[in-house]
Simulated assay, not measured.
Amino acid sequence: MNIREWLMPPVIEPAQDYGFFGPDSVTWKVWSFPTSLTIGFQRAVVIEELDPALVAAVDKTHDIYRRPRTRYDRTLRYFAMVAFGDSASTAKAADVLVKIHSKAVGTDPVTGGRYDANDPHSQLWIHLTAWHSILKAYEQYGPGRLSEAEENQYWAECARAAELQTCDPADVPRTREGVLAYFESMRPQLIGSDIARQAMNHLLRADVMLPEMPRVLRPATRVVSAFLRRGTLATMPVWMREMSGLPTSRVLDAAVALPLRVSFATVATNTRLQLMLLRLLSPTTIEVAAPVLRSVPAIDPVTTTPYETQKALGLDRPRDAHLALRTRQHNRVFGQHLPPSDEGLIESQPILGRVGAT
């Protein structure tokens, strides 16, 4: 890590437009708080692994173990683009993500069934887990619970963001009760398999997402990583932790609450510190989040919807996009027993950042 570069303030370019939400949205309010792209994001990627179809795809590539840093960076950048990015760039990123997911097909070694990352069922699970986790972290370690009107708006915005996924936005619950009912309905389908437990424990290690730290900072890094791990665990229901073989100490859950609230509240008052920490966690996300954190007006201060943008750009809706490629990938994997093509992954690098080895 280059300390001088890390400390320098970023060059901030205004976004082309306000994307799909904008300054008056609850999404910007919640997602711009420092709990979101730390504990909220970590909670999302950890809980996702309980879906046997999803973790089968993760385990097949082993990318979270081979290149955790770049995978984290690319994924966090995409999350930030959905919430904060300009409409055209985000719609193009979502389109290329369908291509990337087309290669994540195969046979689940645990259930014996086939998995497909573009399957609407899997996409809805990923989408709701992310939005719920971001809100949960905000409530537990940030400003607290939203008003009823704000929460209704938040879930309506979540449904709008689902237009970037292959799932049907109509399937997105619009209330807290509906979201909780969704997770309860998923509970019988979740499995704390060996590969899920391995992935979850790995993703709970915040240090695997960080660059190589100077020796003098490593003890502090271990402390921060331990607090983030315990803080993330404390947001997860006990049944989920028990299923995953994760610790369930109520004492430790309570012990980290105040230090984390104070730390996040402190970071939230200092935009430069937020950008420094974000550069540490995800360098490619800076250009997406910095205009929002610094309240830089967009060139064209308007919002739109993903479907409107896709139509304007001549892009198919995600559920219909790249069907020919997805068919070819299925034929390669299930018919010819060959590895899937990497063409989507290669095409994504100018949009989401390079794919590295570490």
Rank of each mutant, 00 (worst) to 15 (best):
Ala161His: 01
Pro143Val: 02
Ala257Ser: 13
Thr75Ala: 15
Ile3Tyr: 11
Ala324Glu: 15
Asp51Met: 07
Pro68Glu: 09
Trp131Ala: 09
Thr232Ile: 05
Gln140Val: 12
Gly113His: 07
Ala255His: 00
Val288Cys: 03
Ser133Lys: 04
Ile100Arg: 10
Arg160Trp: 01
Arg229Ala: 05
Pro68Tyr: 05
Ala290Ser: 11
Leu203Glu: 02
Leu352Asp: 00
Thr232Gln: 07
Pro339Ser: 07
Tyr182Arg: 07
Leu50Phe: 15
Met236Ala: 04
Ser193Tyr: 02
Thr235Trp: 01
Gly356Arg: 09
Phe334Ala: 10
Ser36Cys: 13
Trp131Lys: 12
Val30Gln: 10
Glu49Leu: 08
Gln336Val: 00
Arg229Gln: 11
Glu163Ser: 11
Tyr65Phe: 13
Thr269Cys: 12
Thr90Asp: 05
Asn118Ala: 09
Pro350Val: 00
Gln140Asn: 09
Thr271Ser: 07
His337Val: 00
Ala91Thr: 04
Val55Asn: 13
Tyr182Asp: 10
Pro188Met: 11
Gly192His: 08
Val98Met: 12
Leu275Lys: 01
Ala159Tyr: 07
Ser295Pro: 00
Ala159Met: 04
Arg229Phe: 01
His202Asp: 05
Ala88Thr: 10
Val208Cys: 03
Tyr182Phe: 15
Pro169Lys: 06
Asn201Val: 02
Val45Gly: 03
Glu139Cys: 01
Tyr141Ser: 05
Arg332Met: 11
Asp86Leu: 08
Val58Leu: 14
Ala94Val: 06
Arg215Leu: 12
Gln153Ala: 12
Gly353Asp: 06
Ser32Tyr: 01
Asp194Ala: 15
Lys136Asp: 08
Tyr18Arg: 09
His132Val: 00
Val224Trp: 01
Leu278Ala: 03
Leu323Cys: 06
Asp63Gly: 05
Pro247Asn: 09
Arg222Ala: 14
Ile47His: 10
Asp24Ser: 13
Ile126Leu: 15
Phe183Ser: 02
Leu323Thr: 14
Gly356Met: 04
Thr111Gln: 02
His121Phe: 14
Phe21Lys: 01
Thr269Tyr: 01
Leu260Gly: 09
Ile64Val: 14
Arg205Cys: 07
Leu164Ile: 04
Arg67Leu: 00
His121Cys: 08
Val58His: 06
Leu281Arg: 04
Tyr72Asp: 04
Glu184Trp: 02
Val208His: 03
Arg69Tyr: 08
Ala357Gln: 13
Gly112Trp: 09
Val55Pro: 06
His121Tyr: 15
Ala44His: 11
Ser348Ala: 15
Ser244Ile: 03
Val296Met: 13
His322Phe: 13
Leu124Asn: 10
Trp239Met: 04
Ile3Phe: 12
Leu203Asp: 01
Arg4Ser: 13
Gly356Glu: 12
Arg241Ile: 02
Thr284Pro: 10
Arg176Val: 00
Ser147Gly: 12
Leu50Val: 15
Ala220Arg: 09
Arg66Asn: 14
Arg77Thr: 15
Asp59Ser: 11
Ala234Gly: 07
Ala220Asp: 00
Pro340Trp: 05
Pro219His: 05
Glu139Tyr: 00
Arg230Met: 08
